[in-house]
Structure formats: C-alpha cells, structure tokens
Amino acid sequence: MQEVLIGKAARRSQRLSGKLRYRTKEAFWGVVCVLPAILGFLLWQLGPIVGSLLLAFTDWSVAGVPHWIGSANFQRIFFNDELFYKSLSVTLSYALLSVPLTMLFAFALALLLNQKLAGTRIFRTIFYLPSTVPVIASSVLWLWLFNPDFGLLNAILDQLGLPKQQWIYDEATVLPSLILMNLWSVGPMMIIFLAGLQGIPRYLYEAVEVDGGNALHKLWHITVPLLTPTILFNLILSIIDTLQAFTQPYVMTQGGPNNASLLYVLYLYRKAFKEAQMGYASALAWILFVFIAVVSFLVMRSSRRWVYYEGGER
C-alpha cells in the first residue's frame, strides 16, 4: 500500500518536474525568439528617440562636433522661424481636409462593396488597384494628370465647359490637388472598413426592417455605431500618416508654389539633409512627435464617448 503511494507520488513529482522543466524551456525559447525584435526596438526606435531628444539641444551638423546649446533651437523655431509656422499651418490644413475626406470616401466605397451584388469582387479589385501603385510612380503619373496644358484633368474640365485649373501650380489649389490624389488610393482603409462592415450581424438590420426603418435608419443606428471601433482605428492611423506625408510633395511640388505645400516632414528633411542642420531638425522632429502624441491621446480620450464596444464596456 505504502509502496504504491510512494510510487504515485514519485511519478507525480516526476511529471511536475517535467512540466516545470518545460516551463523553463518555454520561457527560455520565448525570450530567444523575441530577442531580435526587442533589440530592433531598442536600436531603431527607443535609442533614436532618446538620441534625437539629446540632439535637439545641440547645434550639430553632420561634419563637426556637437555643442550643447540648451534650448536655443527651440527658441529659434518658436520665435524666429517663419517657415516653421508656415509648414505647421500647411500641414494642419492639409490634415484637416485630407483625413475626413479620405475616410468618408473609403467608407462610401466600402458601403458600395458591402451590398453583396454579383460582380462586387471585380469592383473591389478596381477600387483597390490604385493603392498598389508605388507612391513614386503615382506622383509622376499625377504630375502628368495635373499638367495645366495637356493633362487629363484639365481636358475633362474643358469638356464639361468648366474653367481650367492650375492644380499643383497654384497656391490656392495645391493642397486640394494633393488630397484629390489621396482619394485615389484609399484601398487599404476601404478594406478595413469593409472587414468591419462584414462583421456586423445581419439580424440587427432585420430588426430595423421589422420596425419599419429604411436604409438611412440602418446606416445611422446600426452601421455607424457598430463601426466606431474601426473608425477609431482608421482615424488614428490616418492622422499619423497624413501629418507625416513626404514623398508626394517632395517629388511633385518641392513645397511650392511659394511654400504653399511645404508639409512639415518636407521642411524637416530640408533642414536635416539639405542644410545639414541635424540638431535643429531633431528639435523640429520632437515638436512633431509631441504634437502627434497629444493629438492621438486626445482622440483616444474622446473615443470613450463615441466608440461603441460590444458588451457595453471597453
């Protein structure tokens, strides 16, 4: 009897220690597996953030030795740099127009595709196709479309009997032109909306039908509330992306005409890599970083009030 018990206990402890040994092994391999990613995070994310904070307080250009100059860069930016304010206001008006317009357009396209008609897959392909075009190629293409004399857009306006535009060559129309271009490539955002739409259970719509509601009721009382988490996701990513737009203005306008499309990162790039003012550009980068962090925080904070979470809590 005793022997049996001892045997049982021994086997159990053996099993336990086997399990324990596996637990240790698991933890070991877990850390080994994520190690490259953690190193990457330290080397290319956290390290550079700290680095650029330090650089922001120096006068460093690529060649010389950095000198600590305290807050001089920030003072110059805030009190003595018109282009900073120009690029800030350009970037803000660009984002304030582009983010809502692209989101609305992507949402509308997703709604169109969600009707489950025969052939929607072809339309999905077509709607997404422009987003696969590399930014550099689409920039070159749209330069040609915007051409005031022989471009497609003015040809269309002309056909419709509307006055021709100068598009990216006019201070007043350069930002709307770039935004028009953004509307052309909302594919990924559209797909995310579509995935959200397809996650809404059918019976909710049927309930509205039973109550005699029409399509607008469905949209406003079912679709939009249930899609708010997706809207939040797209909104945050879109804000971060739009505030950092670079390639389009770099290739198409170089910030012109008369700095009307001098988006923030383009200005930063100029300071850093054309004028070699690395310290100054780092200060600019930190201002953008803080700005984006504050905006994201405010959006997240406000989301508690307008984002619907299933189950009634976050």
């Binding site: 650089l55 923030y264 990162v265 984006i292």
Partner: peptide, 10 residues
C-alpha cells in the same frame, strides 16, 4: 504609432 520622422536623424 511612433512617427518615423523622430527616428530618422539619429
């Protein structure tokens, strides 16, 4: 959510 602009220079 980190802007790439901040890590670019360092």
């Amino acid at each position: 959510m980190l802007p790439y602009a901040i890590t670019l220079i360092p």
